[in-house]
Amino acid sequence: MRNTLLSLLFIGMSAAPAQADTETVINLSVKDGFFTPTEIVGPANAKFKLVVKNEGTTAEEFESSELNREKVIAPGKSVTVFLGPLPAGTYKFEGEFHPKTAQGKLIIR
């Protein structure tokens, strides 16, 4: 019962932004300090969603000063990063809790 209510609420909330479904979705995963893939490609001058899934056992913070985004991801969870419209270019991102190894690039073209 409680689950049904929660999922109903969830459906209601995710349905709220009307334009969301037509956007491109790009998947990225991070596992204990490593992104896969390390290079992702997104569309220029369009809105899109980047879904970052944490498949590791430690928390990670998806951070990019160039994209102006910062998000903590608990292990086993995923977060949605709403991006764009962005001009073509290369944008670096990193895992702030593992900055030595967790490095990646978003190429917009």
Binding site: L6, L9, F10, M13, S14, A16, A20, V72, A74, K77
Partner: peptide, 15 residues
């Protein structure tokens, strides 16, 4: 909140 409600707040609520 981040742990328990992250699926729930997924999308825009948390923002």
């Amino acid at each position: 909140t981040l742990y328990r409600l992250s699926d729930w707040l997924e999308g825009q609520g948390l923002l």
